[in-house]
Write a protein that binds this DNA or RNA. Sequence first.
DNA 1: AATTGTACCTGTCAGC
DNA 2: TGCTGACAGGTACAAT
Length: 281
Amino acid sequence: MPELPEVETVRRSLEPLLKGKSIINVEVNLPKLIKIPFNNAEVFKKNLQGKLIDKIERRGKYLLFLLEDNWILVIHLRMTGRLLYMNHDCPVEKHTHLIFYLDNQQDLRFHDVRQFGLIYLVKKNDLQEIKGLANLGVEPLNDDFTAGKLIEMIGSKKQKVKSFLLEQKYIAGIGNIYADEILFQAKIHPEEPVNNLTEKQINMLLKAIKDRLTEGIRYGGTSIKDYVDGLGNTGQFQKHLYVYGKSGEPCLLCGTQIERKKVGGRNSHYCPHCQAKKVNT
DNA sequence: AATTGTACCTGTCAGC
DNA sequence: TGCTGACAGGTACAAT
């Protein structure tokens, strides 16, 4: 579910509410979600008790809660994870797997229907133990993500551009929805081999990555099924999608029917006219 | 090294 | 009305 814009929206919604608050206790209903300390709810709880929350950061699709004493709580929402800030008296919904009790009568609750979420509690010096986080590639909205950097990353790789965009070790934070929207804006077919892109196409791709992710954040993320921010509010970017989930509908630019096809195991939505495959030259 | 398949879960929806 | 199977915003790991 949540890709970079959704995770960033959650971060922005939670940070002002959590900054300066302390975690007085933790309820763990599904210990297997805790990857570090592995499946160990007791150690997890003990190390969180009484810790002040200094700051919330985001890296790719990971949220990092910087705590007192160099502890960092790292959460990945995967497909259906939600982090919700609410009054301690609110009824606990089904699929609520962790509850962080705060010192202001409020809770931060981790809710996850599919139980794919990943939770880690590490000291700052041990952050690299979280492999998925340590291996993340460039942060796409940072200024150091340039056309030169993108060309360098592509190198002689000949995988499909859609698959390339989804690899977190190259660019951190793009998922299936934004990958399709990015390729539509860049007018590139999802199956185009990435090393076959012209310099002009790479520049279009770079701009599309930055544009679509920025717009996604501006509209508070894409709420199709499950996604909500830290206050339970839906995003609005689903109203601004051009291709994702629109197979059979006319392209908003040319009227051609949007197609859907599996690319690298993931459904991909694209306009066969606007995103025509290059002819071999 | 690069790529593909499978596993992890529950809920929803289309088709019968 | 069920029932069944396919599918879902992601990634870790195994197999090739």
